[in-house]
């Protein structure tokens, strides 16, 4: 129980950026704060760093209340989306900054600082670039410098605010893999803010889904993806289709086709909306039980061959075609059989 966030609230005027948020992080855990913009995830991160003060609530680290500790004394390594490198300093000077501003007993000899900068440059694989200026580096390299700079102060926790948000997809994936390796190696408690659910699911030990200043769900990536707690989380994880269904005696049916809801009770008898991902919806020939639909487009290439079709009520739905099943033609009438769904109350 290294990090403890205890009913933290933060208002900007009348707007509640954080509404009594509580969260506990284990020593060395990699947590991802995931949510749309305005969900409060960056505010929470800045409160952890001491760059923002909570209006209510307490943050503790190893039992110590951090409320009275300024950002300067928290030893929280912070990495910004837009790098925030000091452009008039070389890469090596940037990394050394946190060590050179130390005063008194904590001050390190110049040799020690130089040696540590060398080690960090090697760690972020920029060994030969210590003499360059930030303007002479690529985005990916700049962010690695920013990370090395944050690690130089031997932080107690590492806070990353959408660190890969300004980079292109390929570099982002590379850095993601590299960061995961780095975390495994160093075992530093790490909080990672992102609005990219794939990034969060790939990187984190636990994902914290946030919305409107509240935590919607906390869980392992497989849990959050496979067992979303509510409609928002399901939607935010991507690929959600909303299908009209009947709930009778705890069974969800679509035009006579009964779907599985796993361990999630669908609630009282009623007509409801069920959530289903494309790969859980089977395409069956017309006339079989299921939701009648018309094929609008087929996408045979890519990781998941799928079709786009329209339901009777005009709604457009994506469904997967199983290996071995026949491909429907454009305009053909089919039946959709949602095999695994969730119905939220």
């Amino acid at each position: 129980m290294s990090l403890e966030i205890d009913s933290v609230s933060k208002w900007f005027g009348a707007f509640a950026a954080l509404d009594k948020v509580s969260l506990v992080g284990a020593e060395g855990e990699f947590l991802a704060l995931l949510g749309p913009s305005g969900s409060g995830k960056t505010t929470l991160l800045r409160i952890l760093a001491g760059l923002e003060r909570p209006d209510a609530g307490v943050v503790r680290f190893n039992g110590e209340d951090l409320s009275g500790t300024s950002a300067r004394d928290r030893r929280a390594g912070f990495v910004f989306q837009h790098y925030a490198l000091f452009r008039h300093m070389t890469v090596a000077k940037n990394i050394a900054f946190g060590l050179e501003v130390r005063r008194g007993a904590e001050k390190l000899p110049k040799k020690e600082i130089a040696a540590r900068v060398e080690r960090l440059l090697a760690l972020v694989q920029l060994d030969t670039l210590g003499g360059r200026y930030p303007a002479q580096l690529s985005g990916g390299q700049r962010q690695r410098v920013a990370l090395a700079r944050a690690l130089a102060i031997e932080p107690r926790m590492l806070l990353l605010d959408e660190p890969f948000g300004a980079l292109d997809a390929k570099v982002r994936r590379e850095l993601r893999r590299w960061l995961r390796g780095l975390h495994a190696e160093m075992g530093l408690t790490t909080i990672f803010v992102t609005h990219d659910q794939e990034e969060a699911l790939d990187l984190a030990d636990r994902v914290v889904v946030m919305n409107n200043g509240r935590i919607e769900q906390v869980g392992a990536p497989a849990d959050v993806y496979g067992r979303p707690a509510n409609a928002f989380v399901y939607d935010f994880m991507g690929g959600a289709n909303r299908l009209p269904c009947d709930v009778r005696g705890g069974v969800v049916t679509f035009g006579g086709f009964a779907a599985s809801t796993g361990d999630h009770a669908p609630g009282p008898d009623r007509a409801a909306l069920a959530y289903a991902r494309a790969h859980d919806i089977r395409v069956a020939p017309e006339g079989q039980p299921g939701l009648p639909a018309t094929v609008l487009a087929v996408f045979p290439a890519g990781g998941q061959p799928r079709v786009e079709c329209r339901l009777g009520d005009g709604q457009v739905v994506e469904a997967a075609v199983r290996t071995g099943d026949p491909w429907p033609a454009l305009g053909q009438r089919i039946a959709l059989q949602p095999e695994r769904v969730r119905v939220f109350e």
Partner: peptide, 9 residues
């Protein structure tokens, strides 16, 4: 903010 989090006054 970066300078503050790195310990600068």
């Amino acid at each position: 903010d970066a300078a503050a989090s790195l310990g600068a006054s």
